[in-house]
Computed example of a mutant assay.
Amino acid sequence: MPDGILEAVSKRPSIPCGESPFVLAVGRLNVRKNLARLIEAFVRVARDDPKPDLVIAGCVDGAYVPITVPDDMTARIHFLGHVTDNELRWLYENCDLFVCPSLDEGYGLPIIEANILGAQVIASDIQVFRESNIAVGYFDPRSVDEIASAIRHGLDGINSTVAGHLTWEGVVRNIRDVIYNARRHSNAPKP
């Protein structure tokens, strides 16, 4: 994790949502990040619950299809674009739920950052996120129903078995364990 986020001084970004709870997603805006399904799932949740907003931080990058937000949800779904490390730290520290609906990830740094800074994390049920072992709930990223259900459970606090907040040293230890176990199972030479 870049030191910037750990050394940053928390600063509230300019977001139109007030004191209401908010769900946070962070990452580049591209098809792989699965934001269209996240928004569709959030809309289902928001139509039943008037409190939460959805905040998405990140810039357009790569293959991106503009996402249509229903007219009745434009005041509750906020695209921030690029945020500074100070603003990102504030978002992680103050969100009620961090969600990462990616279809595929190389490592998934945002869920590590969110966890280290105290956010409750739900994530796609993909191998890289399972290996990090920090999410309180996993969902099929191709299922809007499962994403919506995970958001509801996360906001309701039903998931009480938080895997624990990691330190950066814990993240490195997890990576080493995964590499060691992969080598052991493939009969490759040990480090």
Score class of each variant (00 low, 15 high):
M1P: 10
P2M: 06
D3W: 10
D3F: 10
I5N: 03
L6F: 15
L6T: 08
L6G: 12
E7N: 15
V9Q: 15
I15N: 03
P16K: 15
C17S: 13
E19A: 14
V23E: 08
V23R: 02
V23L: 05
L24Y: 01
R28A: 14
R28Y: 12
L29S: 03
R32E: 15
K33N: 11
N34Q: 09
R37S: 10
I39Y: 09
I39N: 03
E40S: 15
V43N: 09
R44H: 10
A46G: 13
R47L: 02
D48R: 15
D48G: 12
P50L: 14
K51A: 15
P52I: 01
L54T: 05
L54G: 08
I56S: 06
A63V: 14
V65Y: 11
V69N: 09
M73E: 15
I77D: 05
H82I: 04
H82L: 11
V83G: 10
T84Y: 12
T84P: 00
N86L: 06
N86W: 00
L88S: 07
L91F: 07
N94C: 07
L97A: 02
F98H: 03
F98Y: 14
D104S: 14
D104N: 13
G106I: 04
Y107K: 05
Y107E: 01
G108F: 03
G108S: 09
E113T: 03
Q120N: 07
I122W: 03
S124Q: 03
D125F: 00
I126R: 07
V128L: 04
V128F: 01
V128R: 04
F129W: 00
N133P: 01
I134N: 05
A135N: 06
V136P: 06
D140H: 04
P141F: 02
R142Q: 13
S143G: 04
D145Y: 09
A148L: 07
A148Y: 03
I151Q: 06
I151A: 01
R152Q: 11
L155H: 05
L155T: 07
I158K: 13
N159E: 13
T161P: 02
A163V: 00
L166I: 04
W168H: 04
W168T: 12
W168D: 00
G170Q: 02
R173H: 12
N174M: 10
N174Q: 12
I175F: 00
D177M: 13
D177H: 10
V178E: 01
I179F: 11
N181H: 14
N181W: 05
A182S: 12
R183K: 11
R184H: 12
P189C: 00
K190N: 07
K190V: 13
